[in-house]
Design a protein around this nucleic acid. Structure first.
Length: 466
RNA sequence: UCCUCGGUAGCUCAAUGGUAGAGCAUUCGGCUGUUAACCGAAGGGUUGUAGGUUCGAGCCCUACCCGAGGAGCCA
């Protein structure tokens, strides 16, 4: 008989009275004096386990069923029946329970039917998907991935895989991990005494990408609306709850568009993402709301209903200067906004997501489009309550002479950017885009407070286990 | 990288410088279909590592390792 997913047993799509086979793992077992046991079995298909009632008459009742502990894998055959007890409407009355895998040394099995600290589970990354919390995070993560592709597909965007290994040294978004096959204890030298990268695998220096943006612009300027969705790497020594060395980023790029179009897209996209979670994972959201971050469901719902507050950087600075709140870092026009300022803007001032636009040119990247005032560029950050910056984007500088002036102003050589400049040289168009940190979106959706718990195998400074 | 706090049983935590304990988990026994069941008993420890002070260190001192929160950088 075919395997039945527990999700379908619980959602009413399997009729009471049907013979079913449940494959899964034991969450807990409770014995009754009446000579029967209640085994909670989960299979990952949904948040809730199903209760399997094991009568004492089962052939292996005493020597196997009564020895089941958390984590054992089982195949349960029986009939789906209405439950006699409270707490569940249906249960499986077992006619056979086959044990596929015992838990060796159950007294030291790390996953117990109790609350664990996130730090402990992080050190058991191979077992943590078995817990309620990480099972739910994994399901919601998948939902956000699927919703991302669906959103862009429905709007006619093309998914462009930009390279993970890049020989381009002009991405400029942060410290990079080197990719090399050179023997580190016996490096080849060139005539000047430096390392001879001509002998390296690619015949030149290579790194892991810090952003797919510059690459994806090539396709934007040919296909119109495109996006990347893939892993990104930063070798920065950041030890925070919001940074990873390896994380996933979504970077849409839209042609014939300006900064307002970009902000509109960011708003539509985020709302689509979180609405998908609310629609598809109500059970997991119930859990997050009850045990991870009270109020997270209401936060998502209001996010989906309210529009974003939009303000210019200049207006944001003015609001901060008038604020009664005490800031560690004083505010003045021209400085970059600190975490405390961003938090105040979105949590205290607007009480909803905020898009801050048109930052001073001196604190932003060379490729952002110069505004007519000559002082600001068409950049935007989306700030979300409780999480801070979730999106950073800009309209790109499409005028070659302005781009070249900006490169020179920032002391950058134009030569490495030859192909990027070509996009402006041949049929240039206004275009814009943004980057969304996928794990940060997942944190916002679930209420998970440390980004290392929003990715199955976190990489961070001095931390690459599993 | 900087600041602050922490590391004791499988897990979560106690323990005036003086005999290392509890709850959960595990094992065993009990309990009228139980809901993170309940009641009773048992096993379980090189107190992060290395030094030092002391009659005596989980506790005090030094160095290091690991973890958490915050800051910077950013997504």
């Amino acid at each position: 008989m075919a395997r039945t997913r527990i999700k379908h047993l619980l959602d009413g799509s399997v009729a009471v009275g049907t013979d079913v086979v449940v494959h899964g793992w034991v969450r807990s077992r409770r014995d009754s004096k009446a000579g029967l046991s209640f085994v909670q079995v989960y299979d990952g298909s949904c948040f809730d386990p199903i209760q399997v009632v094991a009568p004492g008459a089962l052939a292996n009742y005493a020597d196997e069923v009564q020895r089941l502990t958390t984590g054992c894998s089982v195949v349960c055959r029986g009939e789906l029946v209405a439950s006699q007890g409270k707490g569940q409407s249906v249960e499986v009355k077992a006619t056979e329970i086959e044990v596929l895998g015992w838990v060796a040394e159950p007294d030291t099995y790390p996953v117990q039917p109790k609350r664990h600290t996130m730090e402990f589970l992080r050190e058991n990354a191979h077992l943590r998907p078995r817990t309620n919390t990480f099972g739910a995070v994994a399901r919601v993560r998948n939902c956000l991935s699927q919703a991302t592709h669906r959103f862009f597909h429905e709007r006619g965007f093309y998914w462009v895989p930009t390279p993970i290994i890049t020989a381009s040294d002009c991405e400029g978004a942060g410290e990079m991990f080197r990719v090399s096959t050179l023997d580190m204890v016996n490096l080849p030298r060139n005539e000047a005494g430096g390392i001879d990268y001509d002998k390296d695998f690619f015949g030149r220096e290579a790194f892991l990408t810090v952003s797919g943006q510059l690459s994806v612009e090539t396709h934007c300027c040919a296909l119109g609306d495109v996006y990347t969705f893939g892993p990104t790497f930063r070798a920065e020594n950041s030890n925070t709850t919001r940074h990873l060395s390896e994380f996933w980023m979504i970077e849409p790029e839209i042609a014939f568009a300006d900064l307002n179009d970009d902000a509109d897209l960011a708003e539509d996209y985020l709302r689509y993402l979180f609405q998908a979670v609310l629609n598809e994972h109500g059970d997991d959201m119930d859990f997050f709301d009850a045990h991870v971050q009270p109020g997270v469901r209401a936060r998502l719902e209001s996010f989906c209903e309210s529009s974003f507050e939009r303000m210019t950087y200049t207006e944001a600075v003015a609001a901060l200067e008038k604020a009664e709140a005490k800031f560690e870092f004083p505010v003045s026009w021209g400085m970059d906004l600190q975490s405390e300022h961003e938090r105040w803007l979105t949590e205290t001032h607007a009480k909803r997501p905020v898009v801050v636009m048109n930052y001073p040119k001196d604190i932003k990247a060379f490729y952002m489009r110069m505004n007519d005032d000559g002082k600001t560029v068409a950049a935007m950050d989306v700030l979300a309550p409780g999480i801070g910056e979730i999106i950073g984007g800009s309209q790109r500088e499409e005028r070659l002479e302005v781009l070249d002036a900006r490169l020179a102003e920032m002391g950058l050589e134009p030569e490495p950017y030859w192909w990027y400049r070509d996009l402006r040289k041949y049929g240039t168009v206004p275009h814009a885009g943004f980057g969304l940190g996928f794990e940060r979106a997942l944190m916002y959706a679930t209420g998970i407070s440390n980004i290392r718990d929003a990715i199955p195998f976190p990489r961070a400074p001095r931390s690459a286990d599993f």
